[in-house]
Write a protein that binds this DNA or RNA. Structure first.
Lengths: 323, 323
DNA sequence: ATACTTTTTGCAACCGGTTGCGGTAATGAC
DNA sequence: GTCATTACCGCAACCGGTTGCAAAAAGTAT
């Protein structure tokens, strides 16, 4: 059915090895035979079988991209950028969704490992120990979490948090709250650490909460009780849920309480009031992670940590404190 | 490095073919040898190499999923569902983004074809002719577009449009507008056809427009000029852009103009006012498309058309007409 | 005990490519 | 004109599995 390298060889009167070389080692074959072979191949509609090639070369030209939840608006830009960058390098990408389940995540890595040259782990839920064990079988690049001795792409939430807190205190807010994320989240821990380190600010931690609008809604009572007038939420979805819930209680944003999100996802840009937020360079993270991964596939294992800048985007959900 | 079937064979004192059968044809091997082999395999951490297997069996256990734009919020739920369903059947999925470029789309299909058992084409931008040609090389299921003689999953936008128009006329709106999508879009054509077929309604078509908030913003002037008080937009993003633009002109939604979107994406659910919209069962479409594809991989080519119901979700962006 | 099945296993070819090695012809040096 | 290089190409083994065929082992009937 499909046209193979032998069909091309026969049709152009050369040995298969010559055809093979015409494609993957052009300098080893006479230019005139080469063009003839290529013409025949084109004519027959020959396409090299990458899986077969992988068998001998050891390079599959595939990578795996594992995320906790594809539908979480944080990930699509990252996936898109990673995919685009991979394509540039002539790589295909397997995308897998773990549904936030570490068990599934491990299994996925296991079955994927033979078919890929490396995998991108985005916000993995696995334990560090498991990740280190799995590392023996396939190169990783970890995004959005720090794992000792492993190439990593991080976004500097700490800086984002500092900017956000400064923004709020600059507006006159004295009591602040941080609505945290899931207990296992590395980002959430980072945010807490950064906030706690700012001695000049009085920040209450409220959580853990699920990383969705529901998490924000659930936190409304605590936020009000805390007496905070400036709130930083784990992410934009939580922030939106929070604003929603505050509105239901008759609390105006930003009139009475200022709210800042994290991620700068589309829904935040379109919400009303438009969300002030810490922008995460997710697309850049995807792109760079792929470069790192494919770099470390050829040369030897990088294990550096790349930290990407975040920034505060001030929109309409923050305003001056009215004491 | 990696442990192969021969390592297992040697370690358990049998021939490789026996090991192979222990995995893929259990009934052909003595139960006691089988358990022994399996134990050794487990012990050595053996994982069959799917790519190698594919070479002889012709089944890669991979599928391709091609979409125009991963970051378009319409797709992630579909991707997620398709991926989950594929996993259930022990399939992996390549996700590729074409950036709305037919050229890229074709190239992607070409290089993917040898590595997959079938591909899901979501809202393809390719011509029908090209799709039919490519079909020779790999089984397709097409989502969100009708291609003659090809297994297809559609969502009944026509019905959605009728419901939306009825909803608007029911609220007393006499002059309606349809802000259409890109000129190549099958969905956009369907919407126009459905609206035009409703003789009792007076609908002006405004477009084409890009399928984003910018498209909505750009259409504002025309919408106002049309005198319509009820507007149906190509999708939620366009609707949000439109509402945004109308607000800038001091036109209240739904006070003066009612707006309906399509897709029921997250940003729409969170926008203010909350968007009335035609919900598309994208997750179901992804799931069913995979089933169709994997079904047609084994049994012979289905070429039926599956049509999924859409529904109108009334929220806050539509209200009574004030004449 | 013999002949005939049936089960279990090994052998070897094959899937579609790649690659080290060796052979042949052409080129260049002398 | 001879010899050493070099350029080009074919041969055959190999990657990690699967599978048709046949041999060996075990079971059954006579």
């Amino acid at each position: 059915m499909a046209v193979t390298i032998r069909d091309v060889a026969e049709a152009s009167g050369v040995h298969v090895s010559t055809v093979s070389r015409a494609f993957s080692a052009p300098h080893l074959v006479n230019p005139v035979t080469r063009t003839r072979v290529l013409a025949v191949a084109e004519d027959l509609g020959y396409r090299p079988n990458r899986a077969a090639r992988a068998l001998t070369t050891g390079r599959t030209h595939n990578i795996g991209l594992i995320v906790a939840d594809i539908a979480n608006p944080f990930f699509p830009p990252l996936i898109k950028a990673a995919q685009a960058q991979a394509r540039l390098r002539d790589y295909h990408v397997f995308v897998a969704d773990t549904d936030e389940d570490p068990q599934v995540e491990e299994e996925l890595i296991q079955t994927l490992t033979k078919q890929v040259d490396g995998v991108l782990l985005c916000s993995p839920r696995l334990t560090n120990k498991t990740i280190e064990r799995l590392r023996e079988e396939v190169p990783f690049v970890v995004v959005n979490r720090r794992v000792k001795g492993m190439p990593t792409v991080l976004m500097d939430v700490g800086r984002g948090v500092r900017l956000a807190v400064e923004h709020l205190t600059g507006l006159g807010h004295r009591r602040l709250a941080l609505v945290t994320g899931p207990s296992g989240s590395w980002t959430s821990k980072e945010m807490q650490a950064a906030a706690a380190a700012m001695s000049e600010a009085d920040v209450t931690f409220l959580g853990p909460n699920p990383p969705t609008e529901l998490g924000g809604l659930a936190a409304v009572t605590d936020v009000i009780a805390s007496g905070a007038t400036g709130v930083l939420a784990y992410n934009d979805l939580v922030a939106i849920g929070l604003i929603e819930g505050l509105a239901e209680r008759g609390v105006d944003v930003p009139g009475e309480i200022s709210v800042i999100g994290v991620d700068d996802i589309v829904p935040g840009r379109l919400s009303r009031p438009k969300l002030t937020t810490i922008a995460m360079p997710t697309a850049a993270a995807g792109r760079i992670a792929v470069d790192l991964l494919l770099g470390s596939v050829d040369s030897e294992a990088t294990s550096g940590v790349t930290v990407l800048e975040t920034s505060l985007i001030v929109r309409e959900s923050t305003g001056e404190a009215h004491t």
